[in-house]
């Protein structure tokens, strides 16, 4: 399937979901759906670096929060339309990703992982001490009731849902395209044996920098509309550990080798968490995510996609 056709089909499916939700007037669907879409973006973004290249990023929350806080900054400075803010969030997080990668990617993988954790805390401290964006008290974002699109007034949450849908499709297309091009093969050589790749002339550092920049930019895009969604942004919620753990758990539970894994993982785990948050409590749902993560890394290292592939292969050989 060509990239164009894949994108068109994704957009069509997205529109059908939106229209169904709109016709049945389910406000909660948009509210919950936004979170799941956001996780699709975060887990696909994480997988570009983590799954394709094999470099673990624990600081997804940092890139996400960078996007969110650049929105807060512009909200205070001079309000801009959200699509523009999404682009700004992508640029800011992408640049930080590039700088971060440049500082640490020449080292062993473990150092990069630890440095990403460190980045999250440094940025959180900076934001807490930066009064202009609210400091530790947080910032309120006032949004309008409705927004005009092509002359039709629609609910603001529906607008945000649509935007996040666009970002999610964008990140899936990027992630899928990388997997099928030379870039993806380059990434795979880094994951499998970096020394051998370097020796065979693969420009490993440049590829890794491309991966961190892309991955960071996508996470920033996911974060940019977040202040408008939540209405009140404080450092603890933007930098929450649940973003870090979810964007690792979802690809690993789904399977890290292609774009399908993070997508499946985000939908399953995202829906499960929405249900658990409503029916049990939010602490329990985080416990579920953690336990699933540990169980999957031990028992099913290739995730759900890997399990299905093994099953198919076994049937074929029979």
């Amino acid at each position: 399937m060509s990239t164009l056709r894949f994108s068109l089909i994704s957009v069509a499916i997205g529109l059908v979901i939106y229209i169904c939700g709109h016709l049945f007037g389910m406000g909660y669907l948009f509210f919950a759906g936004y979170t799941i879409l956001q996780f699709i973006v975060l887990s696909s973004a994480w997988n570009i670096l983590g799954g394709y290249c094999g470099y673990v990023n624990f600081g997804s929350a940092a890139f996400f929060a960078l996007g969110a806080y650049s929105t807060v900054f512009f909200y205070k400075f001079h309000p801009l339309p959200i699509p523009l803010l999404i682009v700004i969030g992508a640029v800011v997080s992408g640049i930080v990703g590039l700088g971060m990668g440049y500082l640490t990617l020449r080292l062993r993988g473990a150092f990069f992982a630890i440095a990403t954790l460190a980045l999250a805390v440094v940025l959180q401290t900076l934001v807490i001490n930066w009064d202009y964006v609210g400091g530790s008290r947080g910032a309120y974002i006032v949004r309008e009731e409705t927004v005009l699109i092509l002359g039709y007034p629609i609910q603001y949450i529906e607008y945000l849902f649509l935007l996040m849908m666009v970002i999610a499709i964008f990140s899936l297309v990027i992630s899928r395209t990388i997997g099928r091009t030379q870039l993806g093969f380059g990434f795979a050589t880094i994951r499998d044996d970096e020394l051998a790749a370097e020796a065979s002339g693969v420009p490993t550092l440049r590829l890794k920098l491309i991966a961190t920049t892309l991955s960071g930019a996508l996470m920033g895009m996911a974060g940019a509309p977040f202040p408008y969604y939540i209405g009140y942004l404080q450092p603890a919620s933007a930098f929450g550990l649940e973003y870090g753990v979810n964007s690792i758990a979802m690809p690993i539970i789904g399977g890290t080798t292609s774009w399908v894994g993070p997508f499946v993982g985000a939908i399953l785990l995202g829906s499960l968490q929405q249900i658990a948050t409503v029916t049990i409590s939010s602490a329990v749902n985080l416990l579920i995510v953690g336990l699933l993560l540990v169980a999957f890394v031990i028992i099913a290292p290739n995730g759900l996609v890997g399990l299905v592939q093994d099953r198919l292969r076994a049937r074929r050989s029979r």
């Binding site: 416990l287 953690g290 890394v297």
Partner: peptide, 18 residues
Amino acid sequence: SLRGLAFFFGLLFVTEVM
């Protein structure tokens, strides 16, 4: 490398939430 890190990250998270 990758899965070991994710394993310990999961342990950290589970212990904290418990």
